[in-house]
Simulated scan of single mutants.
Amino acid sequence: MEKRGRLAELFRFLQDPHLVARFQRLCGVRGTFSSRPFRRQPAGADGHGRGKKTSKPLRRNSLTGDAGQEFVVENRFLYYLFTFGTELGNELFYITFFPFLLWNVDALVSRRLIMVWVWVMYVGQCTKDLLGWARPASPPVVKVEVFYNSEYSMPSTHAMSGTAIPFALFFLTCGRWQYSSTLGLALALCWCLLVCVSRIYMGMHSLLDVMAGVLYSALILLFLLPALDTIDDFVLTGAYAPAAVAAVYAGLGLLCFTLDAWSTSRADTAQILGSGAGVALGSRVNRVLGLLPDPPPERLPLAPPALGASPLAAAALRWGAGVLVLVATRALMKALTIPLLCRVLAVGEGDVRRARRHAEVELPYRYVVYGAVGFNVLFLAPLLFRALHLS
């Protein structure tokens, strides 16, 4: 009983919002919770050579429309550093990093890394909704970010992806590519720490949320990494793989929509599953057409690509052209899917924002749109590269 009491006390300490608020103050973030009128200070007016900046969260909450409260940033370097760190777990990073890695570095590693990301994020989002723990209270915590504030808190899925992506990338490339394993491990650790600490700085998670996210992700990697060869081979060569992949991901999406009421978590989960299904199906088509072939085993380990002007220009052109394909795919499928679903289901016609809160619209919309985006990462974009002689 005494040990159980100590453990509960430790959990309460790690979940204490005042611990988050103290860390924020240490990093130079100060809230404007006082009811007194707030006077803006010009940059550099703190007398210590560090410019103060009055700011608000960069993006409003997509569910509630909450734009957040003003806060004062006394250390701009840490503000920009941790803003970058938290972006390593957001959609913009995923939609640029994964395709770049796939088109310019290593298709096999990218496919398997996306599998890891899909499963880690899915399990993390579902666990959040099952536990239903609230975000750290504000005040005392300053909400430097509010975009995900309507979601639950435990575990931190940013911490989960910030652990899974760099360490899976390290394990998938170690021995396959020629580089210093010490350097690779150090970079993975720095990536993980930056993302995790940024979530506390942003006021989105307690220390317990972040620690649980790291440990949870490590546990998933322990079971998933040894199975990646088998899963990837099945996706590429299995007779029933296309149907099985589509059915499994769609089924997981239906399950996640039964856990709780609508939130951004629901939308993100469907989006991730759709992307994973699209990439898996696109990988199968890509292999049949030979668009992005894996290097033969005798070429392993692979030497790092040359960093001359010509290879860098080709990589930049591939990435730019490919992203245009993805953006166009997303816009087209979104324009077609939402009105069609609203009309067929007679839900929220004329009010897209309200319609997207209905599970019967949200699930197929996100799944189809991002499934098409994931598919074209490995189909339409490589076809364009071939036509433009950028392969």
Rank of each mutant, 00 (worst) to 15 (best):
L332K: 12
A247C: 08
R76E: 15
H358A: 08
A45L: 10
R36V: 07
E74L: 15
A331F: 02
C196E: 05
Y370K: 00
V344H: 04
P17W: 00
A359W: 02
V146E: 06
H48C: 11
V29Y: 02
R199L: 09
K53F: 04
G322F: 03
E145L: 03
R366Q: 14
L302R: 14
F100W: 14
P311Q: 14
G320Y: 12
G203L: 07
R111F: 00
L194P: 14
G371Y: 10
F234P: 01
Y367P: 03
R12M: 12
L131S: 08
G274M: 04
V116W: 00
V210T: 05
R266Q: 05
R356Y: 07
F167L: 13
G213P: 08
A243I: 02
L194R: 12
N61R: 10
L221V: 05
L130S: 05
T337P: 09
Q24R: 05
S62T: 09
F234N: 01
V235Q: 03
S62P: 08
A247K: 05
R299I: 00
W133K: 01
D66V: 13
W103R: 10
L292Y: 00
L340K: 06
A328C: 10
E145F: 04
V118Q: 01
L336E: 03
S180G: 04
R25G: 09
G5K: 15
A328G: 07
D229K: 11
P304S: 12
S263R: 08
R366E: 14
R76A: 13
C126F: 11
V325I: 12
Y201K: 05
P140W: 01
L307T: 10
V235I: 11
R343T: 15
M154G: 00
Y249W: 06
F375Y: 15
V146F: 12
G44N: 03
P305S: 13
G348R: 11
A387G: 10
T230N: 01
N149Q: 06
L383D: 05
R357C: 07
E360R: 15
L326Y: 11
L289K: 11
L390S: 12
L193I: 05
A241D: 08
L341A: 09
T230V: 02
P57W: 08
V344P: 03
R50P: 08
P295T: 09
P305T: 08
A247Q: 04
L185M: 09
V323A: 06
C174Y: 00
D209M: 01
V29A: 05
W177F: 14
L336Y: 11
R39C: 11
V235K: 00
G238Y: 03
V235M: 02
A134D: 07
V288P: 00
G44V: 00
L225F: 02
L302F: 11
L26Q: 09
S138T: 13
R135C: 05
R287A: 02
V29G: 02
L169K: 02
T237G: 03
S156R: 01
C342G: 03
F167P: 09
A250P: 02
A239I: 01
L88A: 12
L336S: 08
I220A: 03
S206A: 14
G253A: 07
S198K: 01
L302A: 14
L326V: 12
L183T: 07
A21S: 15
L78P: 09
P99Q: 10
E9P: 05
F13E: 14
G282H: 04
G51A: 15
V29S: 07
H18T: 13
H48V: 12
L252K: 03
L390P: 11
V279A: 04
